[in-house]
Simulated assay, not measured.
Amino acid sequence: MRVYADLHVHIGFSNGRYIKVPSSKTLTLENIIKTAKDEKGLNVIGVVDFLCKDVIDETDKLLDKGKLELKDGNLYSEGLLIIPAAEIELRFCSNDFHCLLFFDDYEKLKDFRKIIKIYFNQIDFSCPVFKGRIDDFEKIVSSFEILTVPAHAFTPYKGFYSAAKNIEEVFENSEIFSIELGLSADSYMVNALFDVHRRSLLSNSDAHSLKNIAREFNEIEVENFSANDVIKSIKENKIIANYGINPKLGKYHKSYCKECNSSFNLKSQDLILCPFCKSNDIVIGVEDRISWLCKIENPVEKPPYFYTFPFELIQGFGQKTIRKIIDVFGNEINFIKSLNNGAFRSYNIDKNIAQKLERFINQDYTIKFGAGGHFGRVIFE
């Protein structure tokens, strides 16, 4: 069977307390589940703040109330599988980067937390910091057989490749099966990279709000509807397709000068200066970062990468228009699928909206590139 999965979603508020600051009090586990099922159309969601005690306590309360079901170690809410996960911060050669940890069993997560909490700073907040060495971390996750994935790997802030040049120099004693792309890259940009050759690619939203859930997601072939099978499919490269925003719109796609607010491509990694004002206060863009990494001679064919429709980044698509579209298609994933297979043409859609959707499919638009923490824009001229 095939499932649609967004495996990187944050909780903002849990058990009466902020987990991630700043965030909204509406970004709760219950609201995430409801949004993922009813508005987005996901089958699987990975919630990455499960090391926090408040999140565990709230989950246990929802289980007691019958709002969640625990079956064979898996968390379910009706037709939605919730994979307990964590985003953590590691350090390599004085550089910090983020990783995702995925657990195939809810009780295993609890056992893991009991053993490793002494290794973390602020374990009860979003993205706790691991205090030990990388090899200490590797021993622990290997003993629990936890899937570890570098998060938003190519982004300048806390991305893996802002801290290191390749996987093997950091993780010497454990296998990394997958890499998360992040909003400013797609599989076509990275298919010639050495690190990508044998590994699957994940496209996840890293949502810090309800509306951004499923902004990026994955279509995965699984044998059974369980966390163990989703993780197994990621390890075995059974990603059928990736879905995400056009990376040119990503907020770190181009390099950016914080002095004069210009965006550009750097000519060399040896001399990182703004071509306009000569400042060295530069945020290195994902496109430039990827160009500097080790390549293989023949690019690897990866699953297709379909561009989602970034409502907030497109002129003329306010909340009322978005609501109309969701009402017509049932959920956002149905809408995205209909764009990619052309089925949207058979739906009863406002003529002006349909024209813009047609232009979007044909890439008949102008893009204002994203850079320096600012998303780009799709402009219909």
Score class of each variant (00 low, 15 high):
66 G>I: 11
206 D>E: 12
239 I>E: 07
144 F>E: 08
81 L>T: 11
105 D>L: 03
242 N>F: 05
278 K>P: 01
147 L>H: 09
215 R>T: 08
152 H>F: 01
51 L>Y: 10
268 S>W: 08
45 I>G: 09
205 S>T: 06
320 K>T: 15
138 E>F: 04
74 N>E: 06
320 K>G: 03
349 I>H: 07
63 L>T: 04
320 K>E: 15
140 I>A: 06
66 G>E: 11
111 D>F: 03
186 D>A: 03
354 A>D: 00
299 P>E: 03
83 I>W: 11
200 S>I: 14
325 I>W: 08
361 I>A: 04
132 G>L: 08
83 I>E: 10
123 I>N: 06
296 I>W: 03
82 I>H: 08
69 E>W: 00
369 F>I: 00
20 K>W: 11
12 G>V: 09
228 N>T: 13
329 F>N: 06
254 K>M: 14
161 Y>R: 07
165 K>M: 12
52 C>E: 12
317 F>G: 14
368 K>A: 06
321 T>A: 11
242 N>E: 07
253 H>T: 00
46 G>V: 12
70 L>W: 06
204 N>Q: 00
276 F>K: 15
88 I>V: 15
39 E>N: 14
341 N>K: 00
331 N>T: 03
264 F>G: 11
203 S>V: 03
144 F>I: 02
279 S>Y: 03
112 F>L: 06
200 S>P: 12
54 D>L: 01
144 F>H: 07
368 K>Y: 02
68 L>R: 13
190 V>P: 09
230 V>M: 05
104 D>W: 09
354 A>E: 12
168 E>P: 00
350 D>L: 02
134 I>Q: 09
202 L>I: 14
102 F>I: 02
